[in-house]
């Protein structure tokens, strides 16, 4: 029946993304001779894709329950701030600081979730308010504790994480490609963990059920409030991880980390087939959606597009993606009321 066809085409959305991605890479590759340059194009491109995929996952975590996190960038800044503090003030090693920062991000996310469940206010409003509050708080801390508005202490291993690629990982005589940055390992781990959570773990599955129908979830014995807090905590923790990755890339921890995260955080998941209304997520889709936007950005930049026209193109892509999301939603609603 048409239903099956529709459903298959929904699943095919990711196939479509892959085809579009390949097509764009071929087009840009033939227009720009240096497009496949390992060190100066592909390596930084993949590093950005890795970071923004994690940002996308941070948004996906709350989209799964049908919420939004407008403060995703500021939570990244909040987590990164604790990492900077850990390195500069407490002289902790790289991974200890990472753990502290991610925990701080998760904590601020959990607090956001608690405010939402206890006040009953819409997540959009609460995270918007949280965004403002964190902006002020983070700026204040940086201006009080640093002279140059940045924590610049680099713990051992940070420089390597920034520049190393798989070419620096050798098994015997066989080394990896110099195009894939080592930083990408965090994105891969995050994708595996989040993928496991939503497909296999009870907690993640229950989050999806909350996103699908919160009333039915409550009446099925799912602790709805706890799942909401959990999803926001996950969002905050992943945002902080993305903050870490961006700080490693740029070389320092500043208050402006994450200020560019909001738009990409929606682009990746929504292009990839995650519903804004909750109940369905796609982790691979988030990666593909993020890759697509970054390839477009990189290609247009290399073709000489200005920053302004880039923003216009990306805005248009998001709008198109959101319209697609609406179309899908209409289709699934129609499916639901067909009988």
């Amino acid at each position: 029946m048409t239903l099956q066809v529709l459903r298959r085409s929904l699943a095919d959305q990711r196939t479509g993304l892959v085809l579009l991605l390949v097509l764009l890479v071929v087009v840009f590759g033939s227009l720009i001779p240096t497009f496949f340059d390992d060190r100066f194009v592909v390596f930084p491109l993949l590093r950005d894709v890795a970071t923004l995929t994690v940002v996308g996952l941070a948004q996906l975590a709350v989209l799964s329950i049908g919420h939004l996190n407008i403060a995703v960038g500021r939570m990244a800044a909040f987590g990164a701030m604790f990492m900077g503090l850990a390195y500069e003030q407490w002289h902790l090693p790289l991974y200890a600081g990472l753990v502290i920062g991610v925990a701080a991000g998760a904590a601020i996310g959990a607090l956001t979730g608690l405010i939402i469940t206890s006040s009953g206010v819409n997540s959009f409003v609460v995270t918007l308010a949280m965004d403002f509050a964190l902006l002020g708080f983070v700026s204040l801390v940086y201006s009080e504790l640093t002279t140059s508005a940045a924590f610049t202490t680099k713990p051992a291993g940070m420089q390597e994480l920034r520049t190393f690629s798989l070419a620096d990982v050798c098994v015997g005589p066989v080394c990896g490609t110099s195009a894939i940055p080592q930083l990408a390992i965090f994105a891969v781990l995050a994708m595996l963990a989040v993928g496991y959570l939503y497909s296999r773990a009870r907690t993640g599955r229950e989050m999806l059920m909350v996103g699908s129908n919160a009333v039915a979830a409550e009446l099925s014995g799912i602790p709805v409030d706890r799942r909401i807090v959990g999803a926001h905590a996950l969002s905050g923790g992943l945002a902080a991880l993305a903050g870490f990755m961006l700080a490693v890339t740029s070389g320092s921890f500043t208050a402006t980390i994450g200020s560019e995260f909001m738009l990409p955080s929606f682009l990746g998941p929504v292009l990839g087939g995650t519903l804004l209304t909750g109940g369905a997520v796609s982790i691979i889709g988030t990666f593909l959606g993020t890759s697509l936007t970054q390839v477009i950005r990189q290609g247009l930049t290399m073709l000489g597009a200005s920053v302004q026209s880039l923003s216009i193109s990306l805005g248009i892509i998001l709008l198109a993606a959101l319209s697609l999301d609406r179309v899908r939603q209409v289709i699934s609603e129609r499916k639901a009321v067909r009988r």
Binding site: V215, A217, S220, A280
Partner: peptide
Amino acid sequence: EEGLFLDQPVTKNIAV
């Protein structure tokens, strides 16, 4: 509205 997760498969609805 209260009993089912309409956009989820039968498996999850029964096992939730």
